[in-house]
Amino acid sequence: MREWKEKIVMAGFGGQGIMLMGKLLAYAGMFEGRNVTWLPSYGPEMRGGTANCMVIISTGRIASPYIVEPSSIIVMNQPSLDKFEKAVKSNGLILVNSSMVNRAVERRDLKVFKVAASELAEDLGSVHVANMVALGAYVKVKPIVKIESLEKSLSSVLPVYRRDMLKLNRRALKLGFREALEVEGETS
């Protein structure tokens, strides 16, 4: 089997469900037998500023859980794109929540995808599942775990008091999976 390691940084506003999105991805990775780490930012940003979390999924041992040079970033808002665009590894990937980001990605050495995560989530009935739309879109363009593994892992990751949201989260994952779009040669 080919050895691989994917280092993903997810970032957005506190309250956009960034930590949960990372947990779900890590859980699905573990479910598929990979090594995984999940590292949150745990400062005051939890209450409204920018929040990010780092997830590594690998076929081999994971040494450092801290990501300096991500191979993928999922940016849920513009400050996150401003903060992490420069850090991405050459030939890496950016997935942009185009509902919340008004500028184009400047780097030319990356694969760029977009999904209108917040708007699609609102169409489904709650902007709170924008994180799931983005995650669904991410595994479409970077199939490191199966969408089914994400769906199965949802019940393990959602807090008990949010179990009523299972179906909506599942629909959001699927919608994102369908709606991911590649961005080519877009100029700012």
């Binding site: 995984v36 780490t37 999940w38 590292l39 745990y42 859980p65 801290y66």
Partner: peptide, 10 residues
């Protein structure tokens, strides 16, 4: 330390 306390792993 804070990293070991906060991080998740299997």
């Amino acid at each position: 330390d804070g990293m070991l306390g906060q991080m998740m792993e299997p």
